[in-house]
């Protein structure tokens, strides 16, 4: 996760605590896991503002059913349905869930 985005997430967490969640749109499972770990347990590459900062934020992939069901179907169709056909939604959601279960404090479940 680039340094600016880490700072944005940190600023939001400072303001709202674990009342905010992070929704990822990463297209590969390995990347999704790194991003999820960054916002829950801290930046594993020790390069950005979240290095050694375990925010514990609940983190989800956009393809997680709990997020998907909240989305406006028309917006989903217009913006995401094509990528849903191209990617592997279940494995992406599962990859983020694995990290969430390990490091996040709280969840939407």
């Amino acid at each position: 996760m680039d340094l600016q985005n880490q700072q944005r997430v940190k600023d939001a967490a400072d303001k709202f605590g674990t009342d905010c969640i992070v929704v990822l749109g990463s297209s590969d499972a390995e990347g999704a896991e790194i991003y999820a770990e960054t916002v829950s347990n801290g930046d594993p590459t020790y390069a950005g503002p979240l290095a050694g900062v375990p925010l514990g934020l609940p983190v989800y992939h956009i393809f997680d059913e709990i997020i998907r069901s909240e989305c406006d179907p028309a917006a989903w169709e217009e913006q995401i349905s094509m990528m849903e056909m191209v990617l592997d939604p279940e494995s992406l959601a599962a990859a983020v869930k694995g990290i969430r279960d390990e490091f996040s404090q709280g969840s939407l479940d």
Binding site: S27, D28, E30, M82, M85, V86
Partner: peptide, 28 residues
């Protein structure tokens, strides 16, 4: 870690072709 870029591009185009009903999903 950047994937197969040309393959990712054509997959997106194929998915759009399905959405626009130019091809069937099974033809992707």
């Amino acid at each position: 870690g950047a994937g197969n870029v040309p393959e990712a591009s054509i997959k997106m185009i194929a998915a759009l072709a399905v959405m626009k009903k130019a091809i069937e999903r099974g033809e992707m």
